[in-house]
Design a protein around this nucleic acid. Sequence first.
DNA 1: TTTATTTTGGTTGATTTTGATTGATTTTGA
DNA 2: TCAAAATCAATCAAAATCAACCAAAATAAA
Lengths: 250, 250
Amino acid sequence: MLTTDRYVKIMQLLEEKQSIKIQDAMEVTKASESTIRRDLTDLESQGKLVRIHGGATVLERKLQECSVKEKSTKNLQEKIKIAQVAANLVHEGDCLFLDAGTTTLQMIPYLKEKEVVVVTNGLSHVEALMQNGISTYLTGGYMKEKTGALVGVQAVQSIHHYRFDKCFLGANGFHVKLGYTTPDPEEAMVKKTAANHALQTYVLADQSKKSKISFAKVLDLQEATLITEELPQDEIKRFTKETSVKVAEQ
Amino acid sequence: MLTTDRYVKIMQLLEEKQSIKIQDAMEVTKASESTIRRDLTDLESQGKLVRIHGGATVLERKLQECSVKEKSTKNLQEKIKIAQVAANLVHEGDCLFLDAGTTTLQMIPYLKEKEVVVVTNGLSHVEALMQNGISTYLTGGYMKEKTGALVGVQAVQSIHHYRFDKCFLGANGFHVKLGYTTPDPEEAMVKKTAANHALQTYVLADQSKKSKISFAKVLDLQEATLITEELPQDEIKRFTKETSVKVAEQ
DNA sequence: TTTATTTTGGTTGATTTTGATTGATTTTGA
DNA sequence: TCAAAATCAATCAAAATCAACCAAAATAAA
């Protein structure tokens, strides 16, 4: 069977069932597991579907389903630890910027008692903030469905109207030489703008993100503090040549 | 079963029953207790539900929304009719402003096929728009918890960056002499600004709002079209002296 | 035809997910 | 209050799935 015919069959099946297992695709196409695996990877890189463990799903499958799935489960405990450390830096009455992303999201329960004002570009953050009775402003902008983040010129523009005591950013990766990285240039712009309007900037990243780069936009943050889990002592030293590091205790 | 399929089933069950026990989710998904436990933890970290001892419940905000929903069921049918009429005015490729509020919210399902771009200041609108795969921009601003609307100078400011083909507003009341009214001055500012940036403005209001004023801020909309249900012919005549009226057929 | 190149399917060990079990914690009911 | 029952987080081994590799088959180029 022609490769493209397989693609068509897979996409038809996916459209019908919303999510498919590798086995389903094997039956329909009579191809081997390896081939289906490759096909799904290809189709994902074309932006036609999203790979998940065991198969694939359509891109926009209601809000119920979560595109942030894998990211959030694996390192949740680390994220929470880091978020606690970050939240402890917040003072009564501070005006904060909270970047969209799962790590900063974990900070919110710990901000409940602090009477802060929060500006965010994360959709799920708004809901969590309101649940905790926190005074909330939203940046404007284009709604990125996949991450639930507001981005674009409108988001950047709207941040210009604020000044923050502290700015908390999530990073997709951090690297001794390159600094912080994030895959989406639009989100990078928002992060950078927020950092520029804050007295102090913190970057939250768990160990899994160390030295991970892939197709990343480098975030040029001069005076940000990295908050992460325990790092080998020598690595901390190397990293702190350029920026300061806060370590979340185990 | 695929992880995401389990997530969907759990969320469906939860939406239906508002709160579920681990056992319920086990039956529906045929998965083990451990797996369900992990799923609930994941879904909570994504802000999709709240874990409680023994199971999970829907978010507090959703509960509130539901009670709001029940409140509004009284006029829901009217709202839907009006929303359909309004949605029919929308053309392929239009750029729309959708005001926060339950009536404009009902328009969204009918916009699905039209390839429009929507700007809104309503939080619940965003979710509905994304569910329907509609390209969405959010105004910035302060998040009013009670109504889920973005308001304030930031909201007004951000609207200045857009131009709309059509602007759809909800009104709290309309009156032959006074025109449209709305109780919150901040929301009124947003409405008025949006109208000023639109080629055509429509006000959606069901009969229950006729001549209702209370402590209302008058909305000075010169060239807006009122969309409402059937009105006595003479009232329409009087009303149309100053503005045009579209009547939703029974 | 023969020779490259691509595609395929099977195999490998690594990783992730799962379900069962543990002892700790919380809730229940007396 | 206490103790039994239920639920919990943490851990572990088995099962499922994964990416990476390689050789055979299919295709394209010479």
